[in-house]
Design a protein around this nucleic acid. Structure first.
Lengths: 108, 108
DNA sequence: ATTATTCATCGTAATATTGCGATATAGAAG
DNA sequence: CTTCTATATCGCAATATTACGATGAATAAT
């Protein structure tokens, strides 16, 4: 069947797109890489590491959090952000499927 | 060292972000999935499959192409679009690294 | 209690994306 | 040459994103 003109995108398509969208900005890639790299989970040091204001970093963190890619824990006056792995398999599965489904003889 | 306020993002970060950005729209996810699914590589049937105008589809295809995720081959008056796998390993590597670097004891 | 620190949110300006109709381009068919 | 078919591109309007200063909220320190 596939997608027709009358129905919209599937939930899965929408979910994938929103996760990819969250990764579609260099600041958020850098933030994610930074958080993953730290042995102890770091909060506002990101502000010191990236060329963005505290307000902008906070916004990017909120977007990553909303996409389920990180989670934040309040500890005193600061917030500790960590990787949330739960969404990553979705991306891996999608990429795998694309690779596997691809027809090798296409456009030969 | 990491990223400081004075230098911008690394080339790798920018490259990753632009690929993810290209995937950050449901129409482009659907297009990619559709192209991958076809046994013969299909061109403008996508227009019939998605709830978007021909102009919009063409725009999305151009973005996927610019991100290196698909490639188009002209055959007569139509264009045959196919998956270009070359960028996918970058995404896989990034996701793997995030998973591996992540500190399990973070935010315990 | 006052002040400092850390982070989130608001308001706003600048910029980018999205979608579509109209139009252009290029090859196929007649 | 004219016409049809398949795509791409232009121009425009609507919407979304991004960034930042200013401000708010909450805890820590004095």
């Amino acid at each position: 069947m596939g997608i027709t003109k009358t129905d919209s995108y599937t939930d899965q398509t929408l979910a994938l797109a929103s996760i990819f969208k969250a990764l579609g900005h260099p600041a958020r890639i850098a933030i994610l890489a930074y958080i993953a790299k730290q042995t102890a989970c770091i909060c506002g040091d990101i502000v010191a590491e990236l060329p963005l204001s505290q307000a902008s970093i906070s916004r990017h963190l909120a977007e990553l959090k909303e996409a389920g890619l990180i989670k934040g824990t309040i500890s005193g006056t600061s917030v500790c952000y960590c990787i949330d792995e739960t969404q990553l398999p979705l991306l891996e599965t999608f990429i795998h499927q694309i690779k596997q489904l691809q027809n090798q003889t296409c456009c030969a």
